[in-house]
Nucleic acid binder design. Sequence first.
DNA 1: CTTCCTGCAAAAGTTTTGCATTAAC
DNA 2: GTTAATGCAAAACTTTTGCAGGAAG
Lengths: 145, 145
Amino acid sequence: MTDRSDAHVVIARRLASVGQRYTHGRRSLIDALLVANKPLAIGELLASAALPQSSAYRNLAVLEQAGAVRRVVTDEDFARYELAESLTEHHHHLICSTCGRVEDVTIPASLEADVDRTVARVARRSGFATAAHRLDLIGTCRDCA
Amino acid sequence: MTDRSDAHVVIARRLASVGQRYTHGRRSLIDALLVANKPLAIGELLASAALPQSSAYRNLAVLEQAGAVRRVVTDEDFARYELAESLTEHHHHLICSTCGRVEDVTIPASLEADVDRTVARVARRSGFATAAHRLDLIGTCRDCA
DNA sequence: CTTCCTGCAAAAGTTTTGCATTAAC
DNA sequence: GTTAATGCAAAACTTTTGCAGGAAG
């Protein structure tokens, strides 16, 4: 998944397998996310992708169910969206608690493996079937320091 | 911070140091959180603490600024609140992606230390001054399995 | 062509705010 | 007594939904 056109092909296939079409609006949203390389707020998506709010929300919901995008929650009172990890790489977020900025970041594979293993064990002990973990770094970005 | 009355004393002091009073409504909210031992949604707090919505929101904001409670974000479209970690212990959350249930959980100290160290390093390299990390486990709870 | 998607407008849900009254210190 | 907190109602904001018209396969 290194090329952008690859992403479009994969997404088209996933949408088709759920009986959904890859329309212009959906492609615009994906393009915006491909360029951004970080979670975008709805407002930013509306500006980049140029489509009505209701269509954005509806399309993001469809794209999420098709496994193309992921809804990201921060401390802000609106949602952000990013490409699904199957189209990028497993990563985490640096969140600035002052301005809300969100950036992607990866952590060393060794720690990732430790977290995975421990998280699976802890969850099992609690009666949870764990699907995933979410590790965010909350701090203050360079501009806000 | 093992006793409940201790929590009230500490919170009263923190509120006072910010020029705020420890009123009946605020005490009710704290009591509800002390009993619950897990993040509560606004609706649950309104039921337990029996106060108007607007007062709940305003008081939770004040209590958060005073360092008594923390706003917790999940995938739901409403917020949850829990006692600040300085009044409890550092912990993480098990989140059921089906029913939204949220439970507290702790992970082994050794992993916690690894995460802390790596997170600090990664953040520094990115120009972030890290204050904290947030590690959540997303899965399916026993009841929803 | 047939089914799904779009766009507009209105509704629903959560959270915030103004203001007169009440409680805290 | 003075200052801050409360409670009600109304507003602000994000997100969802209904429905007639248009695009995708």
